[in-house]
Amino acid sequence: MRHAIWVVCAVVLSWLLWTPPSWAFIQDDVDLLLDTNSCPVCILNEADLSDLNLQKANLKVAVLAESNLKGTDLTKANLVLTDFTNADLSGAVLASAQMNGANLNKAKLAGADLHEAEMTQANLGNADLRNADLRGAIMLSVTLGTADLTGANLKDANLRGVNRSRARFCNTIMPDGEIENRSCPEQGS
């Protein structure tokens, strides 16, 4: 009986995290986050949370798909298994954030500060990581897909188990400090 309950819970959780949501944010959840800096398992789709100070916030397993988090400070936040599908995190600070298993598919992270973030098994497929700071990030078994890492800094990042074959690298600082330019447009002569 316990095994069946765990299976049902796992299926429901998987569906919630990997199925594109079709509902908007719940105002009570936004209010709870703003009042307590904690809102695990909250529905915050399409919420405007831009330019907020959410350092050390607990948003574990929250749904923030298509939310506006431009310039928001999420330093050391708990974002484990959080869904950021299509969210705008441009210029956000996610330094030392716990993002293991987070879904950042198609997220806009241009210019974001992700240094020393823990993102093991996160989905960064098709994410915009142009000019992102990923120094020292732990990215074990991350899904990159066709993520754009043009101008990103991956110095000392741990990319073990990551398939980089389709990701875009142009003027990208790799973990060893070398510059990768394999995806740069051809320069005219």
Rank of each mutant, 00 (worst) to 15 (best):
M119N: 01
L144Q: 00
L64I: 10
L64F: 07
L89P: 01
A112R: 00
P185C: 07
D73H: 11
R166C: 00
D133C: 01
R166Q: 12
G145C: 01
A65E: 11
N131P: 04
R164P: 02
A167M: 03
N86S: 09
W6N: 15
Q27N: 13
F25H: 15
L144D: 00
K155S: 13
L81T: 08
V12S: 13
L154R: 06
I138Y: 11
L114T: 02
A95Q: 14
H115L: 12
D83C: 09
G177F: 10
S96V: 11
G177A: 12
N37Q: 08
V8H: 09
H3Y: 15
P40M: 10
L16G: 09
V63P: 00
A147I: 00
M119C: 07
E66F: 11
A102F: 00
N153C: 09
R164N: 06
Q121I: 08
L159F: 02
A117R: 04
A157V: 04
A62N: 10
S165F: 03
L124H: 00
G71H: 04
N126R: 07
K108P: 00
F25A: 15
W23E: 15
L33G: 04
F84C: 04
V8G: 09
A10V: 10
L64G: 07
W15V: 14
G188P: 07
A117D: 07
L140Y: 06
S22M: 15
L114V: 03
P20G: 06
T75E: 13
Q187A: 12
C170G: 10
S38G: 08
G101I: 02
R160T: 15
P21H: 14
K106C: 01
K60Q: 14
E178M: 12
M119S: 06
F84S: 05
E186C: 06
A112Q: 03
L81C: 06
K60C: 09
G71L: 04
A4Y: 05
S165D: 05
F169P: 00
H3G: 12
L33A: 03
H3Q: 15
D29K: 14
L54S: 04
D113R: 11
A110G: 14
L159M: 05
L89R: 01
A152Y: 04
E186W: 07
S22A: 14
D48M: 08
T75H: 13
R182V: 04
D113K: 12
M174N: 09
D31Q: 08
N171T: 11
G71P: 02
A97Q: 01
N58A: 05
K108D: 08
V8T: 11
Q121C: 04
A97N: 04
I43S: 14
L74I: 06
N105L: 12
T120G: 14
N153P: 02
D31K: 11
R164D: 05
L104C: 00
A47D: 06
T75A: 13
A24T: 15
